[in-house]
C-alpha cells in the first residue's frame, strides 16, 4: 500500500513537472518592463504619419481635380 501511494505521489509530481515544461517563451520581460509600449508607440506614430500623409495627398489631388474640371 505504501509503495502504491509513493508511486502515485511520484506520478502526480511528474504530471505537474510535465505541465511546467509546457510554458513557451514569450516576450514577458519586455512586457513587465513596460518597454513594449515604447515599440507600440513608435509603430503607431509611423503608421499615423503615413496615413496622415495619404490624407494630405488626397486633399492635394482634390484641388488639382477641381482645377482641371474648371478649365474644361
Amino acid at each position: 500500500m505504501k509503495k502504491f501511494i509513493v508511486a502515485l505521489a511520484l506520478l502526480f509530481s511528474s504530471v505537474q513537472l510535465f505541465a511546467q515544461t509546457d510554458s513557451v517563451e514569450m516576450a514577458d520581460v519586455l512586457r513587465s518592463n513596460g518597454k513594449i509600449y515604447v515599440v507600440v508607440l513608435c509603430i503607431v506614430i509611423i503608421l499615423a504619419g503615413l496615413l496622415f500623409y495619404l490624407f494630405s495627398l488626397d486633399r492635394r489631388l482634390k484641388k488639382i481635380e477641381k482645377k482641371s474640371t474648371g478649365k474644361n
Binding site: I36, V39, V40, I43, V44, L47, A48, L51
Partner: peptide, 13 residues
C-alpha cells in the same frame, strides 16, 4: 485608418 491603427495596437498588446 482607425481600424488599421486599432489592429496594430491590439495585435501587439
Amino acid at each position: 485608418s482607425v481600424i488599421v491603427i486599432y489592429t496594430t495596437v491590439a495585435g501587439l498588446l
